[in-house]
Write a protein that binds this DNA or RNA. Sequence first.
DNA 1: TATGAATGAGAGTTCATTCAT
DNA 2: GATGAATGAACTCTCATTCAT
Lengths: 187, 187, 187, 187
Amino acid sequence: MRDSILVAAEKVFSRYGYHEAKVAMIAFEAGVAVGTIYKFFKSKDELYREIVRLKLFEMEKRIFLVVKGKAPIEALKSYIHEAFSFFEENKEFFRYFLRDIGSLSVADLEKFGLSDWYDGFINRLAKIVDEGKKEGFFGNFDSKIVMLIVSGAIRNLVYSEVKGSINHDVNSIENMIFKIITEGIKK
Amino acid sequence: MRDSILVAAEKVFSRYGYHEAKVAMIAFEAGVAVGTIYKFFKSKDELYREIVRLKLFEMEKRIFLVVKGKAPIEALKSYIHEAFSFFEENKEFFRYFLRDIGSLSVADLEKFGLSDWYDGFINRLAKIVDEGKKEGFFGNFDSKIVMLIVSGAIRNLVYSEVKGSINHDVNSIENMIFKIITEGIKK
Amino acid sequence: MRDSILVAAEKVFSRYGYHEAKVAMIAFEAGVAVGTIYKFFKSKDELYREIVRLKLFEMEKRIFLVVKGKAPIEALKSYIHEAFSFFEENKEFFRYFLRDIGSLSVADLEKFGLSDWYDGFINRLAKIVDEGKKEGFFGNFDSKIVMLIVSGAIRNLVYSEVKGSINHDVNSIENMIFKIITEGIKK
Amino acid sequence: MRDSILVAAEKVFSRYGYHEAKVAMIAFEAGVAVGTIYKFFKSKDELYREIVRLKLFEMEKRIFLVVKGKAPIEALKSYIHEAFSFFEENKEFFRYFLRDIGSLSVADLEKFGLSDWYDGFINRLAKIVDEGKKEGFFGNFDSKIVMLIVSGAIRNLVYSEVKGSINHDVNSIENMIFKIITEGIKK
DNA sequence: TATGAATGAGAGTTCATTCAT
DNA sequence: GATGAATGAACTCTCATTCAT
């Protein structure tokens, strides 16, 4: 029940965005009564936040699952690929939430109770670069900034409205980012 | 009159975001009656779109003013610097824009009439890279994609509040992007 | 089961008043499920009415128990004392009752089935005065009116929190009512 | 406009009580839109409180207008008469609000912002008795308590549901209260 | 018989928009 | 042109009541 509400809510929020999505629509989509939603979530807002939380946690999990144990360069490649896949899969949802987690302001993060999470997430990503620096592959660049660049690049390419006018498949776009960044930060 | 409404609206939208900004607040800030706003703009929505349009046109204008006539590498540097400056100056406004653009009743950029504009904007930027490739500085990378990477990186770094935990000033961040990109795409 | 619901309901209604008291709270207080309440009472409304009925019947019973067999003047004194005690004991409940009785969907006493009861109650009280008149203690006052005066006086003095600003204990207040009335209606 | 809302609200609150009275009904009765009510009153609650406030102030004004300058006994008579008239006229309204201001609890009064007012009101009434004591008409009874008795008596007789079974007109009821009290408290 | 999860009608309130002045 | 009081549709959330287990 709780799950079908979450699934329905994600759909409706994705289709209409927070404000245009009405609680009644979510209830209808989930096949439950309006009141039922309030049995599981204190408010529309809380329901929304829960979805965002779950999405971001899922993203983190997926990324570090593929990154884990890999050598820096390989890890970077995997990160780019997995992030791309994840955003592609959740394109509709994130289109409305934010075009990239990078644009989450402190206020947003705090509202979502994700401040600490986000800092931890970026730090974990930064370790890939740290490792690469230690192993002599990467030059002396601030690891966090590098990762913000990568994540910004991914976001822009996934959500870019002009993508239609780019004659490249997802794979080659990922490769391009990977090449530019690794080349750009190599020692 | 129209201008003072636009100025007031920008302030109010920046402070509160689209939904929390009330037409009455804008009228008050502009020192006009509510009805007057509707003499110039069909709706709150249209007023918001007009501001976004003006902002982005202004950004484009500023960027190509500093880029114009410069050699590719210098032009790229100038673009990064100017974009950074512009976003920094309009930080508050865009912070909400990124969220609100999704939750407007108009559901996508098309409704803003900005899809075409954005395509043209990226194309103009891409010419910098094209030029660089022609002159033998840059390798065979899709110019548009390169520029989407750069612009995503800039946005991410401007709005990321994590910046607070990065010990670098704006200047050195700009330099880092510039270095990584030029190094990454050089022949 | 029915009794524990009544006990719990009285507590909850007394603490919160009719509208703020929720059926779920009563169920919790009674240690039963919500549905169980509806096995014994058709509605929240009916449950409330039942409590009121029981309260007033209890009051009547208690009053005529102490009044029974006493001489008029003594009986009047006993009535005043017992009524005072009863209201004091049930202060919290009646405090809300006076308000709630008016805001129930059932709009008047008739719906409580109490109109007739109240008439009978006052008639029984009036007999004390009748007796006193017959025995030559009291003058020619309408007995019902006298009793409505007494009962109004009692209520007012019991519920008036202003009592806090009156430097008299319950006992002396009772005495004052008694003295004023007996003196006022004596032959 | 504000006045027609107040008039309409009083009617609707009187007819249905606070909870059954719907804002939409008040708006309809007043011949205005729902939103208009919120231009003048922050909430349904505030509207209700305003009516109560006005009613009680009006009562006080009327009572002390007729009492003013009169000798104690005459003043007492006038108070009883005027209070009776006032409650009779506003019977419907007070039936729902409270059956007598005497039953206003401190909590209620504070909610209505009338705590100080009520204390002052009772004190002003008590002065009539004080005066009577000074002039040697009345015995040593606590003036406030006397007035609470009188006001309780009035309330009960105005709102009593059994009144129908009493064969006396308002005038003679007033007289009876007056006689009993003056006789009861005389020196 | 007892349960309590699910229901859904219905409430108060907001605020973009209108239009008589 | 400018005004701003009036509008009323539409929202989120509550909670008495039901009924399958």
